[in-house]
């Protein structure tokens, strides 16, 4: 049967939402009705629907919609960079550990255990606390605590793959370990990586919001959904739109990523066919 025709609806919905968000983020300068930093003294915390300000304004009279469009850039950038960097690093460690085994594997696994023994957010808090807030430090901090997932999963699958007959066959015709890894094993673990990546991006976006709450996320003048939400949480009663819209944006994005991840897992899983 045609694989595409059986495409899980969750994949379509998830990918669709993400595509829309991406368009909004990339085209922020075209879509935003106001420059995101423009201060409007006469429109402080104006409610949604105020003429000219579709989603209302914030504590400095800045247009919320414009700020959220630009904020989408930051939130998605943080999420995507964390996944890509942590993914590359984690997968490499996992492949090397799984392929070489022995003391290399031992050391690599001890290191992942060290990272895992930290309360997850705490490590990020420590790194941002130490290096100061800001997007690059934030990404580093989130990478440090999330690469271990990739490493452990890839290593685990590698151990299983090593015993597979086709890998054994490759080895018997004299392929080197490196060739075996690239030719057979990497494709074998690719599915898991993609799935981990979607979930990883979701948790990175949420972790950024949590760090913003602790005062260690994105700082002014830049803004992410998390930092807009967290800066405005005191005004939840006066200007609920400042908390509701960025919160919904975060929620919808994370939901889209989870739908996509769930869908991909079932779709890619050979057992479900």
């Amino acid at each position: 049967m045609n694989r595409l025709s059986r495409l899980d609806p969750r994949i379509i919905v998830g990918a669709g939402i993400l595509a829309l968000l991406l368009i909004g983020a990339l085209g922020a300068s075209a879509f935003a009705p106001h420059p995101p930093e423009r201060i409007h003294d006469d429109f402080i915390m104006a409610p949604p629907g105020t003429p000219g300000f579709l989603l209302g304004t914030d504590t400095l009279g800045r247009d919320l919609l414009s700020r959220m469009l630009y904020g989408a850039r930051v939130s998605l950038l943080v999420g995507a960079s964390v996944v890509v960097i942590a993914g590359i690093f984690g997968v490499t460690v996992g492949l090397v550990a799984g392929a070489m085994g022995g003391w290399v594997d031992h050391v690599a696994m001890r290191i992942t255990e060290i990272i895992l023994s930290f309360p997850p957010l705490l490590l990020a808090v420590a790194i941002v606390g130490v290096r100061g807030p800001g997007v690059p430090n934030l990404i580093i901090a989130l990478v440090v605590f999330s690469w271990t997932d990739y490493a452990r999963v890839v290593r685990g699958e590698m151990l299983a793959l090593r015993e597979e007959p086709y890998v054994e066959a490759g080895r018997s015709i004299g392929m080197t370990e490196a060739q075996l890894v690239l030719r057979y094993m990497l494709p074998g673990v690719a599915n898991s990586i993609v799935i981990l990546g979607t979930f990883g991006m979701a948790s990175a976006i949420l972790a950024e919001a949590a760090l913003s709450f602790l005062g260690l996320g994105v700082v002014a003048p830049a803004a992410s959904w998390g930092s807009i939400l967290s800066d405005a949480r005191v005004f939840l009663r006066l200007a609920p739109h400042l908390v509701v819209f960025p919160g919904l944006a975060l929620m919808v994005t994370v939901m889209a990523l989870h739908l996509l991840g769930d869908g991909l897992r079932d779709w890619l899983d050979p057992r479900s066919k």
């Binding site: 100061g132 807030p133 005062g215 002014a220 800066d231």
Partner: peptide
């Protein structure tokens, strides 16, 4: 918030302000 506002005020006299928030 104050920093963003001061930045916009100082831009009026041609200063380019790089706002740095630190813990």
């Amino acid at each position: 918030r104050g920093g963003v506002l001061l930045k916009s005020m100082l831009e009026e006299i041609g200063m380019d302000i790089d706002l740095t928030a630190l813990e």
